[in-house]
Structure formats: structure tokens, C-alpha cells
């Protein structure tokens, strides 16, 4: 039988504070700090119900431990979230796990890692100001219903908004 031993320095959990600082800079990225691991967010989470890999409480725990390298990877489990907001409804601490997950996806984007479908839709938006591409067939369909043709989005304005300000510290909670 293993003998009880005194804890030594190897048992100390080392938290990657740099990862947590980066995450906290994202809008609502800091909310995980209030998580006390009760698990209330798990019961009604459809992704957790239908996938063995996904669990919002565990994701919050990884955030608390600073285990960014497990989350910020290609094919990250983060993309299994359905964005249903049940976790935000259930959390007694107002953590909004779904918003922390989206903030983590913002960190993935900083690393230029996206699933292909997601990257494609973002690209369509950045090019046209809409996520659904236009085509001549679209206006023909609209005409059938007596609707006017689609107007282009003023992209000069949109593009100017997408550039971060040089002095912009993204540090809101």
C-alpha cells in the first residue's frame, strides 16, 4: 500500500498566467475566474449530452489551470459547443461558459486556426458584409415576391471598422 507522503514542490499546480491574461483581454473572457466547479452548466448542455469529449465545467477548469495548450489546437473541442446558452442560464456564478468558449475561439483566431466552414463564412462576411453570398438568382427570386434587388453593403465603412486601433487594449470583462 502506498504510504502517505508529504507534498513536495512537484505537486504544485503551475498555472499559465500568461494564457489567462490573454484570455481576460477578450470581451467577457475573464468570467471563468468566478467558476467554482459546481457542474450546474453540464446537465442541460446538449454538446455534453451527445459527446463524450465536451464538458463546459471541464473547459472552465482548464481555463482556471491555464491549460491553454489543450484547448487552443486544431480541431479543438471548443467547436462542439452549439451556442445554445443553456450553461449561461444555469450558472449560479454568472460565468457564461459559452462566452468564455467564444473568447477562447477569439484566441484560436489570433493563432489563425479555424475549422474550414467557419473560415469560409467569415471570409464571405469580410468580403461582402453579408454571410450569405449574393448572385443574380437571388434578385430573380426576390422579384417573384415583388421585393427590390439586394443593395450592396457599404464595405468602405465596414472594412474601416474591422481594423483594431493601435492603442486599443482589449481588456474589458
Amino acid at each position: 500500500m502506498a504510504k502517505a507522503r508529504k507534498p513536495n514542490s512537484d505537486d504544485v499546480v503551475r498555472v499559465d498566467f500568461d494564457f489567462r491574461r490573454q484570455l481576460a483581454k477578450k470581451v467577457e473572457g475573464n468570467l471563468a475566474s468566478f467558476c467554482y466547479q459546481c457542474g450546474a452548466c453540464v446537465g442541460d448542455c446538449p454538446a455534453a449530452t451527445y459527446s463524450d469529449e465536451f464538458n463546459p465545467r471541464e473547459i472552465m477548469l482548464k481555463v482556471l489551470y491555464g491549460l491553454g495548450e489543450e484547448l487552443l489546437v486544431e480541431d479543438s473541442v471548443l467547436w462542439q459547443c452549439t451556442n445554445c446558452y443553456n450553461c449561461a442560464e444555469r450558472c449560479p456564478q454568472d460565468v457564461k461558459p459559452v462566452e468564455v468558449i467564444i473568447s477562447l475561439k477569439n484566441m484560436l483566431a489570433d493563432l489563425n486556426i479555424y475549422p474550414p466552414t467557419v473560415e469560409k463564412i467569415i471570409g464571405t462576411f469580410e468580403k461582402t458584409g453579408r454571410t450569405t453570398p449574393l448572385s443574380p438568382a437571388v434578385d430573380r427570386q426576390r422579384e417573384r415576391f415583388g421585393l427590390p434587388p439586394m443593395k450592396p453593403v457599404p464595405m468602405d465603412e465596414i472594412s474601416k471598422l474591422l481594423e483594431p486601433a493601435p492603442d486599443e487594449e482589449d481588456d474589458s470583462e
Partner: peptide, 9 residues
């Protein structure tokens, strides 16, 4: 999708 890229934008 776009929110996943950058919440500020």
C-alpha cells in the same frame, strides 16, 4: 462565426 473571430470587431 464572425463573433468567434473577434468580439470587438
Amino acid at each position: 462565426y464572425f463573433k468567434s473571430k473577434d468580439k470587438l470587431s
